[in-house]
Design a protein around this nucleic acid. Structure first.
Lengths: 191, 191, 191, 191
DNA sequence: CTGTAACCGAGACGGTACGTCATGTCTTAGG
DNA sequence: CCTAAGACATGACGTACCGTCTCGGTTACAG
C-alpha cells in the first residue's frame, strides 16, 4: 500500500513515476513499463521507486488505475435493469479498446505477483465493486432484485463473463455480445 | 500447435518433456516449470524443446491440460439445471484446490505470451466448452432453455464468475458460493 | 587424413562436399562453412561427412588448400635472390587479398582443433615448404647461400614475418613491406 | 578497451574476473575459460562481465597479458646482437612452455574474434614491440644496424618465425633452433 | 543563515531465465 | 549395405529484467 509520504520531494517523485508509467503503458503496454524504463523516463531512481512500491506491477496498477478511475461513470437511466445493462455495455467497451489489453495484462500480472494484488484490488476492483453495489442498492430499494442475491454475486455474474472473454479472447466483446450476456444475467438477478 | 510428428524419437522426447513438466507444475507451480528445469528433468535438450513448443507456457498448458482433461467428468443428474449446477460446483472445487492455482497462473501467462494462448485454448477452453455445449444441447432438447440463449453465452455466464474470483481472489470459491452463483445464473438462462 | 575411398559414391560425396565448402568459404569465410551448411548445400548428409573428415576445420583445410594449390606458381627469375624475393612478394599479395582472411581463419582454427592440424599441414604447409626447398636447393647449387642455413630456417625467416602480420594485423602487407622484409631476411640468408 | 572506471565496485569486479580467468587459463587453457566458468569462479555475474569486456577472448587476453607483462625482462648483454639474440631465445623458451599453448590459443582466437584483437594487441604485442624498439634504438645508437631497417621490420623478422612455428608446430622451438633463426635474421639486420 | 541528517539520482551489481547456435552422434527409412 | 534426412544431447553464448546496493551530491528544516 502506498505510504503516502507527505514530504514534498516524495510527492514529486511519486507523481513523476506514475506519470511516466502511464505514458509507457499507453505506448507499449505492461511489457514496456520496465522499472528501468520508468526510472529513466521519470528521472526517479530505482532505489527511490522501490521505497514507494513493492514491485513494478504495483506501480503499473496504481498508475493505470488512477487514470481509469473516472473512465466509466455510473449510468442513471431510471431503472435498475437499465443502469446495470448500460454499465455492462460501458465496461465491455472499455475492455475491448486499447485500455482493455493493459487491464488484462495487469490482472494477469497480479496473479503472479502477490505483492501487486492489493494495488490492483484497490485501484480497480474495489472502486468498481462499490459502484455496482450502489446500483444494486438502488435496485433493492426499488424492490427490483430477486431475494437472496447479494451485490457481490450480482457483480460477478454480470462482469465475470466479460473478464473471462477479455482474458482468453475466445469470444468477441461487441456491444451485442455484452447485451446478450447482461440480458441473460439480469434475468436471473432481477425480478 | 503440436506438430504431432510420428517420428518415434520425437514422440519419446515429447512424452518426457510433458511428464517432467507435469511433475514440476505439481511441485512448484508455473514458476518452477522453467525451460532449464524441464530440460534437466526430462533429459531432453533445450534446443529440442524449442523445436516442439514455442514457449514454456505452451509446454505447461499442454502438460497440465492433458492431465486435467478427464479430471472433471460431465455429470448426468437427469435435469439440465441439475447437470449445470453440478458442473459449476465441480469446476469451482477444481479451481479452489491446488490445481486452481496452476490454472490461474497458466491463464495469466497466456495473456502475456501470445504464442501460448492457442495451446491454452486447445487444452483447456475448447474441451470444456464442448462439454458445456453438450449439456446445453441436452437442455435445449428437453426445452428447458430460455429462447435466444446460445451455449457460448451460457458457458460464460456460468463460469466467468468463477474465473473472475479465481484470478482476483476477491471472494471465496466455496460450495455455497458456487451454488449461489449458478443458481442466479441459471435463473436467467433456463426457463 | 583423407581415407581416399575409391568407391564411386564416396568419391562423388567427397567432391560435392569440397565444392560446396569452397563456395561457402568464398562467400562468408570459415564462419559460414558450418557443417550443417555444407551438408545442406552439398546434398551429402552429416553422417557421411563425418565418415570422411574428422572435423569441419579439416574439410575447410582440404577444400581451400586444394583450390589454392596452384595459386602461387614458383617464380624463376634466374637468381636465387630474385626467386625468393618474388616468392615472398607473391605470398604477401595472396595473404593481403580476400583469400588471406580465410587462410588466417584456417590457421587459427588449426591451433584449436588438433584433428584438423594435419590437414592444414598437408594442404598448405608441406606443399609450400617443398616449393621453397626447391628454390633453396637451386640457390645452394649456385652457391649463393650462406653456410649452415637449412631450407627450413630460410622458409621460416622469410615467411614467418608475413604470417605474423597477417594474424595480428599490426602492420600492413603491402608490396613495399614485403620487399623490405624479404630484403632484410635475404641479406642474412644468402651471401 | 577497458574503461578503467575508478568506481571501487567496478574495480573489485574487474579484479575478481581477471584473477579467476588467470586461474582457469592455467588449469585448462582458453577452452576452460568459459564466460560461465569465469562468472562462477569470480562471483561476478555474466551481465557485469559483458559490461566490462566485449568477449571472452578479450578477458583472457587482458588476464593473461597482465600476468605475462613482466615475464620476459629485457636483456642487457652489452651488444645489440647479444641483446637481440638473447631476447629471441627467451621468447622462444616462453613459447615452448605451458604458457606458449595459451598464447597460441589467444592469438588464434583474436583472429576469429575481431572485438578481442585490440585487447590482444594492447596486452601482448604493443608492450613487446616497444621493448624491441628500445633494443633497436640502442643498436642504432651504437651504429650496429644496417641502414634503412626499421624497428618494425626487425621485430617481425626476428619473432615472426617463432610465431609461425608455435602456431603450426611444424618445427621445434628448441634453444638451438632459436639461435639458428636469430643468427640468420641478425646477419641480415645488423652490420 | 547555516549545519546536518534525511533523501535522492545515478547506475553498478548478483541473480535467474531466456532463446539461439553449432558441434558431433545416432536413428530411421529408402534405394 | 550405404545413404540422405534430420532429430538429438551438449554446452556455451549473449541478453533482459529484476530487486538490492553503494556512492556522492541535494535538499529541507532546525537551531
Amino acid at each position: 500500500m502506498p505510504d503516502r509520504t507527505t514530504h514534498p520531494r516524495s510527492l514529486r517523485a511519486r507523481e513523476s513515476v506514475l506519470c511516466a508509467t502511464k505514458e509507457l503503458l499507453a505506448e507499449g503496454g505492461l511489457t514496456a513499463a520496465t522499472v528501468d524504463a520508468i526510472a529513466a523516463r521519470s528521472g526517479v531512481s530505482k532505489a527511490t521507486i522501490y521505497k514507494h512500491w513493492p514491485s513494478r506491477t504495483a506501480i503499473a496498477a496504481e498508475a493505470f488505475g488512477r487514470e481509469m478511475a473516472a473512465a466509466i461513470p455510473l449510468p442513471d437511466t431510471g431503472s435498475a435493469r437499465g443502469d446495470l445493462a448500460e454499465q455492462v455495455r460501458r465496461v465491455s467497451r472499455f475492455y475491448s479498446g486499447e485500455h482493455g489489453k493493459v487491464f488484462a495484462q495487469l490482472l494477469a500480472a497480479s496473479v503472479t505477483d502477490p505483492q501487486a494484488a492489493p494495488y490492483f484490488r484497490e485501484y480497480f476492483l474495489d472502486a468498481r465493486r462499490r459502484a455496482i453495489a450502489e446500483l444494486w442498492q438502488r435496485a433493492t430499494d426499488r424492490d427490483e432484485v430477486r431475494p437472496g442475491i447479494t451485490a457481490g454475486t450480482a457483480t460477478d455474474v454480470l462482469f465475470g463473463p466479460l473478464i473471462f472473454r477479455l482474458l482468453t479472447g475466445h469470444a468477441p466483446l461487441s456491444e451485442e455480445e455484452a447485451d446478450a450476456l447482461s440480458s441473460a444475467a439480469l434475468d436471473g438477478l432481477l425480478r
